[in-house]
Design a protein around this nucleic acid. Structure first.
Length: 111
DNA sequence: TCATTGACTACGT
DNA sequence: GACGTAGCCAATG
């Protein structure tokens, strides 16, 4: 029997926002955290992503504030994250998104 | 309970 | 503009 999902709620929200990221778009951990009301918990978003393993969460669309694929080491392969992004039309070079500023997706604005 | 770590961010040099 | 340090919050040992 499950009890309160207060803590899970935060993770659930992260998953929900991550799933809302449109094709060929990316966002940052801090942006999601801020959208959820936890701007200081950007790390927690990353933690949620780590927990999203096995879920339908496009974690490859979530990068740090400079568009750097910091979490690529958590994926199966070595360049899987970059490959996924490039497959969506995202220009990635050296684990970093080039036109990050152009494809940046902000839930607080787009939504 | 305390100490360490981590898919971050901001500030200072 | 690159590098180092500090701050933050939660999970893990």
């Amino acid at each position: 029997m499950e009890q309160k999902k207060s803590s899970d709620n935060f993770f659930e929200k992260v998953y929900d926002v991550a799933r809302l990221i449109p094709y060929g778009r990316v966002t940052s951990y801090g942006t999601i955290a801020k959208y959820l009301g936890a701007a200081r918990s950007a790390r927690m978003v990353g933690w949620a992503m780590n927990n999203s393993s096995g879920k339908d969460i496009p974690a490859h669309r979530v990068v740090n504030r400079v568009g750097l694929l910091t979490g690529k080491h958590h994926f199966d392969g070595t360049n899987l994250m970059q490959q996924l992004l490039e497959s969506e039309g995202v220009e990635v070079v050296d684990n970093k998104i080039q036109n990050f500023k152009e494809i940046f997706w902000d839930p607080a604005i787009e939504l």
